[in-house]
Design a protein around this nucleic acid. Structure first.
Length: 130
RNA sequence: GGAGUCAGCCAGGCAAUCGCCCUUUUUAUAGAGGGAGGAAAGUCCGGGCUCCACAGGGCAAGACGCCAGGUAACUCCUGGGCGGCGUGAGCCGAUGGAAAGUGCCACAGAAAAUAUACCGCCUGUUGAGGGUAAGGGUGAAAUGGUGUGGUAAGAGCACACCGCGUAUCUGGUAACAGAUAUGGCAGGGUAAACCCCGUCUGGAGCAAGGCCAAAUAGGGGAACGUAGGUGCGCCCACACCGUUCCCGGGUAGGCCGCUGGAGGUGUACGGUGACGUACAUCCAAGAUAAAUGAUUGUCCAAGACAGAACCCGGCUUAUCGGCUGACUCACUAU
RNA sequence: UGGGGGUUCGUCUAAUGGUAGGACUGCGGACUCUGACUCCGCCAGUAGAGGUUCGAAUCCUCUACCCCCAG
């Protein structure tokens, strides 16, 4: 009965990849030296919502770092939800299996209420590098 | 049904899939359990905890200020007193002292505090002078208020009532209230101006503090010395830093601190209440670039403000939409 | 996270609780054949709310924003 319902609903859905990936501790940028390397020698991709910096590593998996300043989003709730949205998009993209170090910075015009626009922008960024 | 006052509560629910953090069972990309708030916020107060002399003396500085109680403590809370606002239910109040002293009170006004006399009133030779403070006028504020007697005109000059001060008595734990007697009136306001009186405050803060590994010399012991420096401001007091000799391995990372506590819930009792006591029962976030999300379906009242970072008690501020209870006022109908 | 300081015309800055002043800028006028310089005049402000006071830029409380320090 359960499996019949699942088949009836149909997969995959929008925004959820069928072959799912995990966002683990090794997928994060933590040290200041790692951030510094990406900032100094990375490639840039800029649009009106995000600035994305990418640098190749030889690990076989990608690592994500986020820089969300208090000046761009003053409330902690907005900062947290923007981080969640970027992480979710990173996890559902295939870029997580490539070997990149990625840093995402929001622009000043980011509005947390327009989630679909943010998602489309992030997807185009990922596609540019894969 | 209308207008209001007070107190309390909720803060989208359910299901599926994919993910994140912690604990645990077992070592399997497995299972089980738990996972933000009423304000987590502002950091405005008070405490716990840790270290510095287990915390010392004096000065300075600061906070608070009716009375009684609650609490670990408070500038918080509860009850009462007093004053103000409201028809009322109720609400608001940093609410000691101006008769200890100092300062300030612009402009106007005669005069802003040792008092004094501009227009006036009365007397007087209608000149000088004298007696007055009823009336006018200025001001935010003008030396008790109203009435009657009295007088040349007036005046607590006298009387009645009110206000004020002092004493006694009664009620109340007290703040305070009431009554009686007495004084003819003590003398403006400002203490959120200095100040006086009373109470309280040692400092720094989990990036406190402790342990471990590596790493480029911090430390320990003995002797000398008390000139200087450091320990929120100053003076003491105390401790450390200083020089020589001997011994011998420290700041970036990780772990602890870290959540079982002035804990929650229920019942009973005491208390007007804040709250307290006893018993039973439960364990309910602990991250460290920082965890609660995404997608879809469905229901409704259509979802606001907003994210723990050592922990509690308060205060303040933000907040969509509702729900419950008690009470007040006016109108209508029975 | 903790500690400290600040907010006055568009800009810089002053003001003992008693009419918020000055400079630069802007606007108008005068001078000049025209412009500059110079002179005269005008506009424009106490971060917001509440309280104490007869009366707050000033005193007190709360809120908002900015800056600095520890790291």
């Amino acid at each position: 009965m359960l499996e019949g319902q699942k088949a009836e609903r149909g997969w995959p859905r929008d925004g959820v990849n069928l072959e799912h990936f995990r966002y683990q501790n090794q997928n994060r940028l933590k040290k200041p030296e790692q951030f510094r390397g990406v900032f100094n020698t990375g490639k840039r991709s800029i649009d009106s919502l995000f600035t994305v910096l990418v640098k190749q590593n030889n690990l076989g998996y990608s690592r994500l770092g986020l820089v969300v300043s208090k000046k761009k989003l003053s409330l902690a709730v907005q900062r947290n939800s923007l981080k969640r949205l970027v992480r979710e998009s990173f996890r559902n993209s295939t870029i997580i299996t490539k070997g990149y170090d990625i840093v995402v910075l929001p622009q000043k015009t980011v509005n947390i209420n327009h989630k679909s626009a943010l998602k489309n922008s992030l997807d185009s960024h990922w596609e540019k590098f894969t």
